[in-house]
Nucleic acid binder design. Structure first.
Lengths: 339, 339
DNA sequence: CGTGTCTTTGACAACGTTGTCATTTGTTAA
DNA sequence: TTAACAAATGACAACGTTGTCAAAGACACG
């Protein structure tokens, strides 16, 4: 690798002068600058980050830690959002995943410390509480899609309460009153928050939220779930008082609702309105009719997390806001207005 | 941050001795070691990678560059596989995406060089040719899910020919003869390779591969495609001679085939067998009946790419193998044996 | 021409680590 | 007891960069 010294020797100037030129210091004669530039080009000089950093400069690398055990491709967008935010600031991203293993997480904190990253984003694959394993880390740590149990760290979260509210509000506004709900596991924080949101929407509409119409679409533990949506939905449809709309805990659930509806000869949206959650385009734009859903703003969560990390470095240590990102309604074709 | 010097002062030994202990050098007295270990713990010393690297050590960081424009979550598994392989070697991953922009790619090569990464994996989001933009880079570059136009770089690719063969072989073996094919864009390398594979399987079975039964499921340019699978499939099903099996270019296509079949009252697999490609679990395990498909071995591609990168460092510069990873059949419930 | 000011350049140290080599301490054999 | 040797430890330089400060050159003004 070419060093400043080598360029300096070729150009017949001091190392420091070359350094100044590389860093755009104006205190250097234009003629010298142009002359040295040529040599920089020819030798294809690239500054050595390790040396720079050692000299005391702030690190240009951020760390992203995930717990991605999941086979779900859900939250790639968090990473994409984070990357986009970093590119703007000419920073780069060191990435690693814990696979949900606390020992691995501890190792990774060491690794990140060892690289002196400027900040760390801890991103969870679904909305939940996460106690950061003793990082002994003095730089900023931002939680994305998760929060600290005792709220002592900054976090960026989807506004699931508002998301649930939005789902319910939409079908209620379309005139539906017999509404079925198929949820994710109740162990998931989001499930409870969304139910609160739905209840709020029901109350506003003067309709009572009937728990009997709410069913779990999954059984089993978090890491080994079985989908029973097809069966649950089929049973709902058999009722003489079958729902005219189904609110789903995510788009995957909606997908099986489509299957169940098809097998019963129900046409969406004519006989049944369906609303999803997540807006996984792979599903929502592929289903026929295309799925009306509420989007999980993962990209923005990642983006904001990085911005927060950067700004957090100037805050005191009690800085721990909890920022909620709204979940917008994405209207497509799977809901019908009742007349 | 705590340095060797600080630990050395506390422990009353030389910097070098502490260094030896940190690096597990056996040439140090057991008593000294234990004594200093305590101080290392207390002060929570973590070695500074930047300093280590500057001292001349090989970098412990690899770079992963992707062209991920896509909204598709397909290839996260490449990253997961790469990470898994790196964790084994106690290495970390610097990640960045070009968004398909050549200028950005050039910048990223500089960034990676600047960090003196030990090797780079360039991962494409779908199987294609990619000419690495002038990296001026002397470390190993491995192409994952893509290949160099003139085969002058090592690459790891899914064996799409074998994948197509596997799809066709499976339905042929089940006795199907009227077989429809719905493909991805012909601009994609994989589409052509798979067709070759299918033709080989047809030949072996003594059946002629009828191009009239092959249709495109997408229209438009690569970055702005419209799915027309539903329409194409519906038309196929109307034929008095309708196919008994459909081979799909991916699972997403299969998903719309399911919709089209449902809307025509066709029951899968009784009236129609469907086989997908990719094995995106989000789709293949959620559809009812669950989808028989051929898996794209993305995880293994990422894993092998890293291994190749590590071993490539000892090879000469003409080292440019093209390694094909087989695409295995994943049997589920969407295909039926004709009697 | 001398003085002061501003511009341009360079010498040097320091960042934290480890390789090299020298020094000190301990151990064994004669 | 001493010489020879091994084990343990440390002094120092070097990696590539930039901040600090000093020096040298250019220029204007009286």
């Amino acid at each position: 690798m070419v060093t400043l010294r080598q360029v300096a020797e070729r150009a017949g100037v001091s190392i420091k002068t070359v350094s100044r030129i590389v860093n755009g210091d104006p205190a250097v004669n234009v003629k010298t600058r142009d002359f040295v530039q040529v040599h920089l080009q020819n030798l294809n000089y690239i500054p050595n980050q390790a040396a720079r950093q050692m000299r005391g400069a702030v690190s240009t690398v951020y760390g992203l830690m995930t717990d991605a055990v999941a086979t779900t491709p859900y939250s790639v967008d968090i990473v994409r959002g984070a990357q986009a935010a970093l590119i703007e600031k000419h920073q780069t991203l060191l990435i690693a995943s814990t696979d949900g293993d606390a020992a691995r997480e501890a190792e990774l904190w060491q690794t990140f410390r060892s690289h002196r990253v400027a900040g760390v984003i801890y991103a969870a694959m679904f909305h939940k509480a996460h106690e950061v394993g003793n990082p002994a880390y003095d730089q900023s740590i931002i939680l994305a899609n998760c929060f600290a149990p005792n709220n002592d760290r900054p976090s960026i979260l989807p506004d699931d309460e508002q998301g649930g509210y939005t789902q319910a509000k939409h079908v209620l506004k379309l005139g539906h009153r017999r509404i079925g709900v198929i949820t994710l596991s109740l162990d998931i924080v989001a499930t409870k928050l969304r139910r609160q949101g739905m209840q709020r929407a029901f109350n506003e509409a003067g309709v009572s939220y009937n728990l009997a119409n709410e069913r779990r679409g999954v059984v089993g533990l978090l890491d080994n779930q079985t989908l029973v949506i097809f069966e649950v939905a089929t049973e709902m449809f058999k009722s003489h008082n079958r729902p005219t709309a189904i609110i789903c805990g995510n788009d995957q659930i909606a997908m099986q609702v489509y299957s169940a509806a098809a097998s019963m000869g129900l046409i969406i949206p004519h006989d049944l309105s369906v609303i999803g959650f997540d807006d996984l385009k792979l599903i929502s734009e592929t289903l026929r009719p295309q799925l009306t859903t509420v989007a999980l703003p993962y990209y923005e969560i990642g983006h904001r997390a990085v911005e927060l990390s950067i700004s957090a470095r100037e805050q005191d240590e009690n800085f721990a806001p909890r920022i909620l990102i709204p979940c917008p309604l994405i209207e497509r074709k799977s809901c019908r207005k009742l007349s």
